[in-house]
Amino acid sequence: MPDSLLSRGAMLLLAAVGCALAAPAMATSAPGFAGPLAVHLRSDSITLRMAKAPQLYLAGTIDAAAVEQMRQLLRSGRVSPGTDIYLDSSSGDIAAGIELGRLFRAARLSTHLGTWHTGSAPARPATCLDACAYAWLGGLYRWSPSGTDRIGLHQNLLPDRAAAEPGAPPPAELRDYVAAMDVDPARLAQVSGAMANGIAWWDAARLLPAQVANNGRLPLAASYMKTPGDAPRLVLSQTVRGREDQVTLQCAPGQVALTARYAVGDERARSLAARAMYAYFEVGEQAWQPHLGKRPQADGDALVFERRMPFAELTNVLRTGSLGAWVEITGSPVRLGFWLAPSLAEKLTQPFYADCQAMQPGYVPPKASAGQARPSFWKRIGQRLRGGG
């Protein structure tokens, strides 16, 4: 049987799932699954072909026993790096949720909200509350809830509280964990919607902009290299579900060369290159000269193409929150490619721009401010006589 069932009791699990599916879809408060942790693993060939990863469904109370159950699954090798974890839990211990989140991150797992269902039976809404929400934060890739799925924290478990509530971890400990999961603790307050029955439900639409969810995208990586005699070179890298795409910006007098590297795998790169019609960059959702330039070529595991822009266009490229690199393929109804946000790497894009600007014809360095003016001739002589250089 392609779907594996792993639980503390098959009869208990079947009864719990049956009750859950029978619950009204529009209940006033989605209860989540609060029984002992039930685990379903879906790793059949169809799932692996369509979803590109196994799917593990966890429903029930998150406690020390649940953490140990997950640890044993990881040790068994049945849950591999990249597995998608679907959570549905409204009860549990916060310390256990944090430990579960750490296990997810160490194993490079992705977290979603979702409930197990088979056949044509509709999936009921998932609820991820308190311990579950902290476990969800442990996902290397964290996917925003969809539909009527909900995630949130009781007010007394928010990490921005001044003091700990009875039975709750100290707020500083919660903030340290959230930060260790590459999430700014202050962003949790930004995504919280209206309080309802003491629960701050997170607004799914705010999770991605606030970078609490990343929907498969790791933070933008940037590398700036400038050595004497070489032109400034900036590399922006975006990892999406384990695939790293790049845009390289190489400065030259009067222009900047942009090279896109779209990682698709060796065999697919060759196939797509043979059918590629044209490629282009998109700055702020505006295509830049889409029908000009050479077609993309296969280079190892990637499709690669280059375009040259006037230096005057560089500011728009570095400030945009969406720089796309797209390829149009013969016979395909959709374009292929990726996008990244140069504006998120401002600490490196600014010095790159300054050094590139200094290479441009007619560049005049700014005059030194009064506080940085060169000392007068007689003052320099006095400094030398006093041993000051």
Rank of each mutant, 00 (worst) to 15 (best):
S110V: 02
S376W: 00
A59G: 11
R374H: 11
P232I: 09
L12V: 13
M195C: 01
L272R: 10
F311D: 06
L21G: 04
L58M: 05
S91A: 15
S120M: 08
Y141T: 09
C356S: 12
L292H: 03
A298H: 06
L385H: 06
A213N: 05
A66P: 08
Q289G: 03
G362H: 04
G389S: 15
A23K: 03
R105K: 05
D44C: 12
P145L: 00
L37K: 00
L103G: 09
V79C: 10
G198I: 08
A164I: 02
R71G: 10
A312Q: 15
S91D: 13
I329F: 10
K347R: 14
A180P: 05
G229L: 12
Q246I: 09
V256C: 01
A260V: 13
S80P: 02
G284R: 02
D230Y: 14
Q289D: 08
L48P: 12
A133Y: 04
A370H: 12
D245Y: 12
A96F: 06
M50E: 13
Y177E: 00
W201P: 05
Y280P: 09
Q372P: 04
F377M: 10
R386W: 08
A345Q: 09
G77V: 10
L336D: 13
A135D: 02
R142Q: 10
R307Q: 14
A257Y: 02
G32K: 03
G331P: 07
G9M: 03
P166V: 02
D266T: 15
A95Y: 01
R295Q: 08
P351M: 14
R124H: 07
L41R: 08
L344A: 12
F104L: 04
A66T: 03
P342V: 06
P159Q: 00
R241E: 14
L137M: 11
V283I: 15
D182K: 08
A370M: 13
G60T: 00
V317Q: 06
P2V: 04
G371R: 12
A53T: 01
A95R: 03
R102V: 04
S332Q: 14
E285N: 01
L129R: 08
G198E: 07
L292D: 13
L318G: 10
L74R: 07
L385E: 08
T330W: 11
N214M: 11
A312V: 14
D160Q: 06
K347H: 13
P170N: 07
L249C: 12
D44A: 06
R270T: 11
S7K: 01
L140T: 15
P2E: 02
R150E: 10
R71P: 09
Y141S: 13
R108H: 11
E99K: 15
L5T: 12
R307M: 06
A27W: 01
D63N: 13
V283Q: 01
W378N: 08
L234V: 08
A126H: 00
